[in-house]
Amino acid sequence: MIETPQGMFAALEASPVSGVVERWPALLVPGLTGSKEDFIAVLQTLAQSGRRVVAVDLRGQYETPGPDDPAAYTCAALGADIDLLAQEIGDGEPLHLVGHSFGGLVAREAVIDGRTKFASFTLLGSGPAAIAGKRAEHARKMIRDIPELGLDHVWHAGFEPEALANGVPDDIIAFLRKRLLANSPTALRYMAEQVVTMHDRTDELRQVELPTLVLYGEHDDGWSAETQSEMAGYLDAECVVVPGAAHSPSVEAPETTAAALIRFWNTAESHFTDIRPTPL
């Protein structure tokens, strides 16, 4: 658990096996129905590049508690949480920020608000505005069903059949069920509203002039590959397409994803010629 002025946040942390931290840390932010566990496959590889790497649950998500106030789950409010987490984890050093899917929209708020100095920003399977396609339909269904039917219905009517159809192992299905039901219903409902109504803030992000990476799977079904490629071009950002991956490259192609992040982070750090991290 990471303590901030806004409360406690559940986290997974990885450090170099050597115990020597040589480079700036990284903060990984999950998507709408995800959690910190979505980054397990990349955490240790990323840490072996000489960094402290932390993945968190957003407020109201899985193992991080959250209030029943809908205002706590706007992208702006959640972005303010990311500022506090980044300041706590970075402890005065610039920090690499990665946001997956809805987490990218949240992390973008923290970058734009200017309260925290970041070393770089990565949009991982995340687009410029509202999510589209089947994932948008799924989010709208959650918005309708959660208040009247509850999370248990959402699991049995949508998540469980999809997992079974995809041949997900029983132990992973058990975890996915536990995770979904542990979410704050208020959080999940209003986060879903945010992801289907978010306006485009690419112009504002461009003005920050922060090293930015747009990284996505070639078969992404949240924001199209074309949409993400166009966003990268407008931001003058580096763009990496992960072959064979869909909406969750850190799960579907962890080594390729980790390698792309490490290379990007190292390059971003080389631009900060007047700042050097201090080894612990």
Rank of each mutant, 00 (worst) to 15 (best):
D69Y: 03
K36L: 09
F39Y: 09
A260I: 09
P30V: 05
L46D: 00
E209H: 12
V54H: 02
L124Y: 04
F9T: 12
G244A: 03
N266C: 11
A182L: 08
T64M: 04
G158Q: 14
V195N: 05
H153V: 03
D220Y: 06
V154N: 06
T227G: 05
L105A: 10
V29D: 06
W24V: 15
G7V: 03
Q207H: 11
R51E: 02
T74W: 06
F102P: 09
E162H: 11
P128Y: 13
L84D: 11
A47D: 02
A246C: 12
L215N: 02
V20T: 10
G233K: 04
R189C: 13
L149Q: 12
L124V: 11
A225L: 02
F264T: 06
S248H: 12
V98S: 00
V20C: 05
M1I: 00
S248A: 14
G50H: 01
L235Y: 08
E13Y: 03
P94R: 01
A47W: 02
E209K: 15
T4G: 07
A110K: 00
H138V: 15
G90A: 04
L210M: 06
T122D: 03
I275K: 08
Y62K: 09
G222M: 00
V214N: 01
G34C: 14
W155A: 07
N166P: 07
I275Q: 12
T45A: 08
A80K: 09
D83H: 06
P65F: 00
S35A: 10
G127E: 01
E63Y: 10
I89H: 01
E209T: 12
T212Q: 09
D171N: 13
G103V: 09
S229M: 09
K141A: 15
A11F: 04
S35W: 06
R52I: 10
T227S: 13
W155H: 02
N266F: 08
V53P: 06
D170P: 07
A165S: 13
T256P: 00
N166E: 12
R23S: 09
R135W: 09
V53N: 04
Q44M: 10
A86E: 04
R276E: 09
F175M: 13
N166W: 08
Y190R: 02
V56S: 07
A157T: 00
L235T: 00
T212S: 09
